[in-house]
């Protein structure tokens, strides 16, 4: 086991000694700080409700909205304010946790970076020619492959942690931390009272499905074609075109078996899935099958194929 730990150490070392990796982290930190500055300057931080007469503030706001409201017109703000008033919940002051929650979209960047690392971790060894010296050690190729795959996952985990922590720290510096964990959330037009920690966990969790699948996919292409730009290209293209692909084939009965019809598990939380007849269980099964296929193909190419010149 300590033997395998050393392989992991090697792979992590090779990832983190490179400047390109640090550029990724600097970029993430830069984006997070920019977001905080922008939110601080232009965002609605719910400051006006942070006083004892918050009910009056809400009521006054409602009156104003009603005055300007045309007949038969709906107002989301009105519904939301009424929800607060009816349930006697004071609107939560914007804080670091909310900032963390809103930054969940940064996970697509984390996914992108993980794809780049996954695509390179095998292909780069071929490009550098170092694959030869790597594979002549008294270790099975399976073990080396596993150390590389787990290293990709460790990278993804650390990068995710980085986004979470930096968001929290930057958020705390700009907005402070609110002790109140309860949070009112719009759920398809109606409002619900939820825990913000739970929302953060769910939001990030759902994104991890795409991250894991696309990183594993890029890893497979990297192993099969020994070429990182190809792996990065295909994986990123599919990541962004995924939903369009599903929409394009939605009329076919087999569309539900497309990977991207199943990567968004959030679709089962509220309302209908994108294609009729799908369920959480179905999606998880499809995802598992794809995942296993990706890994088996990766393994076959990595362990069985000659490392030839040219």
């Amino acid at each position: 086991m300590s033997n395998f730990f050393k392989l992991l150490y090697n792979e992590q070392f090779k990832i983190y000694i490179r400047k390109s990796t640090w550029v990724m982290y600097l970029l993430l930190a830069g984006i997070i700080i920019t977001l905080a500055v922008v939110t601080n300057s232009y965002g609605d931080l719910n400051e006006k409700y942070q006083q004892d007469n918050w009910r009056d503030v809400l009521q006054e706001e409602n009156n104003e909205i009603n005055e300007h409201l045309q007949e038969n017109e709906q107002s989301g703000q009105l519904t939301k304010n009424n929800f607060y008033l009816e349930n006697d919940i004071q609107p939560r002051a914007y804080d670091a946790w909310q900032f963390v929650m809103e930054n969940v979209f940064l996970l697509s960047l984390v996914t992108l970076f993980t794809i780049i690392v996954a695509a390179g971790i095998i292909a780069n060894e071929f490009r550098w020619g170092t694959i030869k010296l790597l594979l002549i050690r008294p270790l099975s190729r399976t073990k080396i492959l596993l150390s590389k795959y787990i290293s990709v996952l460790i990278f993804a985990f650390l990068t995710l942690l980085f986004v979470l922590l930096i968001s929290l720290i930057v958020g705390a510096l700009f907005f402070g931390v609110n002790g109140d964990a309860s949070f009112v959330q719009n759920q398809l037009g109606s409002y619900a009272h939820v825990s913000i920690y739970g929302e953060i966990l769910k939001g990030y969790g759902y994104q991890l499905v795409t991250l894991l699948m696309m990183a594993t996919f890029a890893f497979m292409i990297s192993s099969a074609f020994r070429q990182s730009s190809l792996a990065i290209g295909i994986a990123i293209f599919l990541m962004f075109a995924g939903n369009s692909i599903v929409a394009f084939f939605a009329d076919h009965s087999w569309a539900k078996f497309i990977l991207f019809a199943n990567t968004n598990l959030e679709q089962y939380e509220f309302g209908e899935p994108i294609i009729e007849g799908m369920s959480v269980g179905f999606s998880i099964t499809v995802l598992a099958v794809y995942y296993i296929i990706f890994l088996v193909v990766t393994w076959l190419f990595f362990t069985k194929r000659d490392v030839a010149g040219q």
Partner: peptide
């Protein structure tokens, strides 16, 4: 085997330690 290719972004020592960890 063929050209002695090593990790160009690592020092000679780091390269050796890398391979040393594999045995």
């Amino acid at each position: 085997v063929e050209n002695p290719e090593m990790y160009p972004f690592m020092s000679g020592k780091q390269n050796l330690l890398h391979y040393a960890r594999m045995i």
